[in-house]
Amino acid sequence: MLPEFELLMPRTLPEALEMMDESSKVMPLAGGTNLLVDLRGRLSRPQTLINIGGLDELRGVRVEDGYIVVGSAATIADLKRNALIAKHGQALRQAATVFANPLIRNRATIGGNLAYGSPAADAAPPLLVLGAEVELLSKDTRRTVPLEEFITGVRKTVRHPRELITAIRWPIPPEGSVGVFRKLGLRKADAISVLSIAVMLLHMDTGDCDQLRIALGAVAPTPIRAAAAEDLLDGGPLTPEVIAQAAQLASEATQAIGDIRGSAAYRKRVITALVQRLLTNLAKDTKEKKH
């Protein structure tokens, strides 16, 4: 059984922000796929939940000033079947197809996945490589935080208790950019990630070299970018040697820990192997495309 709590049911976003402002012991409830589980396990004890899942202002995917803007209450299933995401958020779409299971995907929201602050959040690595920002709104304030700064530790974010995530946004990647996502779980569906990787190649139509971004999940207290690996790859051709070195650097960027799903050493090692594989495939694909 769930513990006792108050549940507020705002009908509009301003109403929700008003409610959020009234107390610090409130918690927004969207899909509930993490929160209700935690409440039942008594891992979280908010006094008041504010149901934001049904707010129209927080749904949908749209293009705005060269950005893709995803409402925070868009479900993972929404992302999976959205044409804009398919085109401008390939790695995110791939993550959405392997996210938990179909029932969870119909409830879980992109905002909730980030707000929960799990190092294993499957939406995070794709959004990191997309250069996403998190839009936070309170009754009186509005700010945008880069995703890299949003999650600060295991289950910790910079979201103030009075703030709501209203949207996730990222600049539309240049035409010809490619994103991929790979997760490793202990079974082939409905598994918490032992590790996850998103890689994105940003095609620079300005004539500059293509840029590569790599993000990793479940191998550090937060989802991370593999900056050193990205720097190494910056500008140069994707030779097998460079790829191997970058994969090694990516692995060194992790602060993996051991848990019931795998040891730290295993995680580090497979990060190397899979980053190498994803980059090699990417190099092959782009080569094929050019020819």
Partner: peptide
Amino acid sequence: TRTPSLSEFLIPTAKD
């Protein structure tokens, strides 16, 4: 037990 529920104690899904 470190696998107290069906999210830690895994049994095959249809995809496995």
